[in-house]
Write a protein that binds this DNA or RNA. Structure first.
Lengths: 223, 223
DNA sequence: TAGATTGTTAATCGATTAACAATC
DNA sequence: TAGATTGTTAATCGATTAACAATC
């Protein structure tokens, strides 16, 4: 039990990987795992796993191993995952895929907890470690996991039609764009520049407890 | 003079940074630099610089230091920069900026050597280490540096109007898109998926010595 | 209790820094 | 030649792996 003390950057950098493997194990119903088993799975040494985890305190138990759920939760809280706004991706076509793969959502304050599409060709495929689900199961998903934002990558009209549902399900803000980038405004607030047709709109950053969704007009010309 | 031998990944990973600093020095007319000066500039130790550079052979000279131009060229050839297709970015607005920042062009076989825009607000700004230039200087730039591809992020009509010029200046292929992503086709060829309106087109990868530009139709629906 | 597996200390390996003789 | 600065060897530092006593 060392708790705080100085933790090396190498260890910190490995935590997200542990987190992902544990999430997968959890998803497959595994309740306990030894450093040896996890090591084989992740292709590292058991020694390293024990050393790494011990930087934060004794999560394991001699003769037993590690409790997958507990460990997942602990690493999540170390990573500050609980401070990120849980979001769903609606529409996992080319645009949604590009966005999920190219944009570091966690540095933007978001954590993707689910991805949805209506196309049978896309449902069931993998997207940054999540399995794309049928859009029909979105409502049930929302009731269970309470996402607080939706990133919408489907045609504009369909998105507009969906807005009422999303808000009533407790998703308090969403984006819909055909192209995007991020900037900081003069107050250091991160904003999304949304490309719609020939103009660029800046949607103010979506905040967790915002009720209803809010647009900050401010239209400029593209280059 | 060790030449080849095993070079550690840490060293390899630092090379692009050396390359960028040397390019900047070159741009500012600096012809020679000592490991000590470069170390201060880059915020590393002089020792590390000498160790790193010596993995590839003695580029320096005792009592003198390193020849900036030679070193820049050498590191470039180690990085295989000369195997990448030199490309210009035309239009450095929101979309161009996003593309240059988010997409690793070098892994796609491209190397950005210049960026151009017509907006006075954008000209002179920095874009991944390049200064955005006035679009009026594009022709002169092409004659001097011979880019072989152009990534075009300006309105469609303007791009179409430009095509003739680009081809006559020796730029043999170009892209114009409002949104993009990359995929591998069944033959392992990298392709660009171009989002134009509601459909997705796949433009075949632009090859260095391709003459004229070539479209591979293949239109699909977006999700 | 006996077996398993952790937490932790010691050994190894690699990467960074310091030092200095070689040499331009 | 004298001064500067490299190339390179030796010393240090940190991270990974091995080993094993502690303990569930």
């Amino acid at each position: 039990m060392k708790q705080d003390r100085h933790v090396s950057p190498s260890v910190i950098n490995r935590l997200p990987r542990y987190y992902r493997f544990l999430r997968d194990l959890l998803g497959r119903g595994v309740t306990r795992i030894s450093s040896k088993e996890l090591a084989e799975l992740m292709n590292v040494t058991a020694s390293q796993i024990r050393q790494d985890l011990n930087c934060f305190g004794g999560f394991g138990q001699q003769g037993y191993g590690y409790n997958v759920e507990l460990l997942h939760k602990e690493i999540g809280s170390i990573l500050g995952v609980d401070r990120l706004t849980p979001a769903v991706l609606i529409g996992a076509g080319n645009l949604g895929k590009t966005l999920a793969n190219q944009v570091n959502l966690s540095t933007r304050g978001f954590r993707l907890i689910g991805a949805f599409d209506k196309s049978p060709a896309i449902i069931g495929t993998d997207l940054v470690g999540l399995t794309v689900q049928n859009i029909d199961s979105l409502e049930a998903f929302c009731r269970r996991y309470n996402p607080k934002a939706a990133i919408i990558c489907i045609p504009k009209e369909a998105a507009a039609a969906m807005a009422g549902d999303l808000i009533s399900w407790g998703i308090v803000g969403f984006w819909n764009f055909s192209s995007y980038d991020f900037t900081q405004n003069h107050q250091g607030v991160t904003a999304v520049n949304v490309h719609l047709g020939d103009s660029v709109m800046t949607l103010s950053y979506l905040i967790k407890h915002m009720d209803g969704f809010q647009e900050e007009a401010e239209t400029e010309d593209d280059a």
